[in-house]
């Protein structure tokens, strides 16, 4: 059957994996953030979005969710800038 030593593309991609880091959840930022082990929050130096952290294992951090007030303000400012009008979203 197929040559056993051949590495498929999905296998070769595995070598690019990094632990201990998260990526900014702003999809067009995707900046790599390296939180210090055990820390609870991190801000993206590039785009300013701020997140709460959760550690799946001591080596595997994960973004738990936004720091709501910070990111909400960011969103509202961006919307105002893009549409030229403040957001009526107040619920």
């Amino acid at each position: 059957m197929a040559e056993q030593q051949k590495v498929s593309s999905s296998e070769s991609l595995r070598s690019t994996r990094t632990f201990g880091k998260v990526r900014c959840h702003n999809p067009s930022c995707m900046g790599r953030l390296s939180p210090s082990p055990g820390s609870k929050e991190i801000s993206c130096p590039t785009c300013g979005m701020t997140y709460r952290l959760f550690w799946v294992t001591p080596e595997l951090p994960r973004i738990r969710g936004p720091v709501w007030d910070v990111n909400r303000k960011l969103a509202q400012d961006t919307l105002a800038k893009k549409t030229g009008a403040p957001d009526g979203d107040s619920q």
Binding site: H25, N26, M49, A75, L79, D89
Partner: peptide, 12 residues
């Protein structure tokens, strides 16, 4: 209808 919440690049 444009998106109104979330990351800056998603807005609008």
């Amino acid at each position: 209808e444009p998106c109104r919440r979330g990351a800056p690049d998603v807005i609008g």
